[in-house]
Simulated assay, not measured.
Amino acid sequence: MDRANVSGNRIKEARKRANLDQVELAVALEVEYQVKITQSDISEIERGIRGVKDYELDYISRILNVDPTWLLRGNNNEI
């Protein structure tokens, strides 16, 4: 199966480093940016099943305090 996104693993890593669970990330997206993404959506994004819209990736990066380019490409630098 082809992956629907390339950032899922890094989103999961950054979310865990931020000490947020999937529900907390989903709530933060809705409260801070009025973006409705469910816990199930977050799970599917992290597993590469669901794609991520550009604005979703931007907001996720803001909440997780990481560079959106890192979420897309990764690198050897620390988050």
Rank of each mutant, 00 (worst) to 15 (best):
L29P: 07
L64R: 03
N19K: 15
L25H: 06
I45T: 02
E32T: 09
E30D: 15
V23K: 14
R73E: 13
N19Q: 13
E44L: 14
D58G: 00
L20D: 01
V31I: 15
S61I: 03
I63V: 15
S40Y: 10
L20V: 04
E56T: 02
E56D: 06
E44V: 03
R50D: 03
G74Q: 07
S40L: 07
V31P: 03
V35P: 01
S43R: 12
L20Y: 12
L57E: 00
L57Q: 00
Q22L: 10
D67L: 07
V31A: 14
W70P: 02
R47C: 05
Y55C: 00
I49R: 08
Y59W: 08
L57P: 00
K36S: 12
S61N: 04
Q39N: 08
T38I: 07
R62D: 07
A26E: 05
R50L: 11
I37D: 00
I63P: 04
R73F: 15
A28P: 01
G74N: 09
I45Y: 04
W70C: 04
L25P: 03
E30V: 10
Y55P: 00
D41L: 04
Y55A: 02
K53D: 06
K36Q: 09
T38N: 03
E30L: 14
Q34R: 15
K53F: 08
R47S: 08
S61C: 05
Q22W: 11
I60Y: 03
T69W: 12
V52N: 01
L72M: 10
K36V: 11
D21Q: 09
I63L: 05
S40K: 11
I37M: 13
R47N: 13
R50C: 04
P68C: 08
R47M: 07
S40H: 06
E24Q: 15
R47Y: 05
V23E: 14
S43M: 09
V52D: 01
V27L: 14
W70V: 05
L25Y: 06
N65R: 14
V27A: 10
T38K: 05
G74L: 08
R50M: 11
N19L: 11
D41A: 14
G74E: 07
Y59F: 11
Q39V: 01
R47A: 09
D41E: 11
D21A: 09
E24R: 13
S43A: 14
L57T: 00
S61Q: 04
R47F: 04
E56Q: 12
V66R: 03
L71Y: 09
I49V: 14
D54S: 09
E24P: 04
W70A: 06
E30I: 09
V66T: 10
Y59K: 15
I42W: 06
Y33T: 05
K36G: 00
V66A: 04
V27N: 11
N19M: 13
I49M: 02
T69V: 13
N65S: 13
G51L: 01
